[in-house]
């Protein structure tokens, strides 16, 4: 599990709230730099943390198995009428796609 606000960090919550910086400080502790870099490009169409809603579907908080299945299907050209995701998914290994699916499934919705 890679929750953005891990249980271990909640101890500091009270103090941080007083500083008005709780969200940022806690996010810092939960921030997996490697995974964020791997997921970085997704935000350019799906919004920061994959949380944007619009004609490009959001990723944040969706079921990890569903996301993984879709990503693998895009990679294998099994999705009809795909425009771009088949070309993008082929740039990642299956393991990386699984990791991305978990990453976005674990983004906490605001």
């Amino acid at each position: 599990m890679n929750l953005r606000l891990p249980r271990a960090a909640t101890a500091a919550l009270g103090a941080c709230l007083l500083l008005g910086a709780a969200q940022q400080v806690l996010a810092d502790d939960a921030y997996d730099l490697q995974r964020e870099v791997m997921a970085g490009g997704c935000a350019n169409c799906h919004g920061t943390d994959g949380a944007r809603t619009g004609n490009v579907p959001p990723l944040a908080g969706r079921d990890a198995d569903y996301l993984e299945e879709r990503l693998l299907a895009f990679k294998r050209d099994e999705v009809a009428d795909t425009t771009i995701m088949n070309r993008i998914a082929k740039g990642f290994s299956d393991d990386e796609l699984t990791s991305l699916a978990e990453h976005f499934a674990n983004v906490e919705q605001e």
Binding site: C45, G47, R52, G54, N55, T83
Partner: peptide, 21 residues
Amino acid sequence: PEIRQMEAEYAVGWYNAICQD
């Protein structure tokens, strides 16, 4: 033509998302 139209729509979706990001 449907795919070309979808890409035109996704272009707008991309622009809005990257500017938000």
